[in-house]
Design a protein around this nucleic acid. Structure first.
Length: 432
DNA sequence: TCTGGGGTCCTAGGACCC
DNA sequence: TCTGGGGTCCTAGGACCC
């Protein structure tokens, strides 16, 4: 493989170690690496509690993994179980990204999630140290000193190398730094035998690769790309590139989203069978998403309704739910949107008991000045600076809930219970 | 994994147009 | 009208990530 024509830059993928649990440690004056903390959401529909985050020590001592259940958490006095405070985590995330802006220009920072950001340090790293690794340590030290949080840094010559360095090496390194370069791909990427450890390879993809007798990243790198293409389509080429540590997309391309949209969904606290009860929740969620697109001054032209049935139905070999989409005249009017959603529901529902409801609006057009949206693609109208991006990123991740309607007083309604939630979890007061 | 929530991206097949 | 081929839009479904 000739890497000469591939982009060679310096990228940092930075992640906050056990972010929610660490924030909770910090505000309590505890060391995030030593405290034994579990952040648990106990909403009505979490069936007793859902673990959102676990401190490193809690993981080590009691093997409590994220997204486990309350019943998996041992009852011990030394484990501190706390409710989530999403608003606190959002504030901390914004502050961390502001520190990053002292080391890279806003347009070179891409927040990837509430606790991970990608920094293109190509132009700036020399200002701060003798090697990328030295600069990474300076940033880690800053965040440790100012915020009390431990960060993990993956370094690469392109974004995917940085991401793999973060996931595969930095998290297990005692300095919390990992690095992958083109020249080290054979010894860093190829030895991976558990393919699902690799970003973008999940259970299904790993299984399909196994069928092609590909069990390691080395085998993936030395497989036939045309065969991969035949099996996976474009994704096949992406997998092949991944095995060679190749990533040709620029940060600007990563920032643009092909089909932005807004969605909210919820697992109901029990199975709902009554037509009227289900409709109330569809209406609530529809209004919630409508309020969000109005807040962002968008109109939607494409609405989707997803309904998941009770497992009791799915087990009998029937359909496990349905998902339907409809293209409509651009609008952000709650009433119109809810009517459309309810008519979709009427068209597809066959009296099955329902457990999961999702509503999504996409095909967005700008609300103000229709001429603008005619001549400018949606992507260009999306905000570009890093702080806006963090806010967008967090809002797209959590969706801020705000409206309560009279119908929410009807039986089955869930909105009032959820009105103060952020991303389905307790918002809390940032500083209480 | 008997149900958390919010996202993004890709594919395939059908409809329709020129 | 027993016909080709390229392009776009629409929808359902699948997969993965944090």
């Amino acid at each position: 493989m000739n890497y000469a024509k591939e982009p060679h830059g310096v990228f940092f993928f930075i992640d906050n170690k056990s972010f929610y649990a660490s924030c909770e440690s910090v505000v309590r004056g505890l060391n995030p690496l030593k405290s034994i903390i579990v952040v648990m959401s106990e909403q009505a529909n979490t069936n007793g509690g859902l673990v959102l985050a676990t401190s490193p020590m809690a993981k080590k001592l009691y093997h409590i993994t994220n997204v486990s259940r309350q019943r998996d958490v041992p009852h011990r006095a030394d484990i501190l179980v706390v409710p989530p405070r999403m608003n606190l985590y959002i504030k901390m995330s914004l502050k961390i990204n502001q520190i990053y802006q002292e080391y890279a220009a806003a347009e070179d920072i891409l927040p990837y999630s509430i606790d991970e950001s990608l920094l293109d340090m190509t132009k700036s790293w020399r200002l701060f140290g003798d090697s990328p690794e030295a600069v990474a340590k300076i940033i880690q030290h800053r965040i440790r000193q100012e915020m009390g949080l431990y960060t993990t840094v993956g370094i690469g010559e392109n974004p995917v190398q940085a991401k793999l360095a973060l996931d595969l090496y930095a998290k297990h390194d005692d300095q919390l730094v990992g690095e992958i370069k083109y020249e080290t791909v054979p010894e860093t990427i190829w030895p991976i035998t558990n393919l699902t450890d690799v970003w973008s390879i999940g259970q299904r993809t790993a299984k399909r690769l196994k069928r092609l007798h590909i069990n390691t990243m080395a085998e993936l790198a030395h497989s036939n790309p045309y065969q991969l293409k035949a099996e996976f389509g474009i994704v096949g080429y992406q997998l092949f590139a991944l095995a060679w540590g190749i990533d040709r997309t620029s940060l600007a391309e990563k920032r643009s989203v092909k089909e932005p949209g807004f969605s909210n969904s919820q697992v109901l606290p029990r199975d709902y069978s009554k037509y009227a009860e289900i409709r109330v929740v569809i209406k609530e969620i529809g209004e919630q998403v409508a309020a969000r697109i109005r807040a962002h001054q968008w109109l939607t032209t494409k609405i989707s309704l997803g309904i998941g049935f009770s497992y009791a139905v799915a087990q009998q070999g029937e359909r496990s739910g349905f998902h339907c989409t409809k293209t409509i005249e651009a609008t952000n009017n709650s009433h119109e949107l809810v009517c459309e959603l309810l008519s979709l529901f009427d068209d597809y529902w066959n009296e099955e008991p329902v457990r999961n409801i999702a509503v999504s609006f996409s095909g967005l057009m700008h609300d103000s000045g229709e001429q603008l949206s005619l001549f400018q693609p949606v992507k260009q109208q999306l905000k570009q600076t890093a702080v806006d991006q963090v806010v967008d990123c967090i809002q797209t991740e959590f969706g801020i809930t705000s409206l309560v309607r009279a119908s929410s007083l009807l039986p089955g309604a869930t909105m009032i219970n959820r009105a103060s939630l952020v991303g389905g979890h307790n918002g809390g007061n940032a500083y209480d």
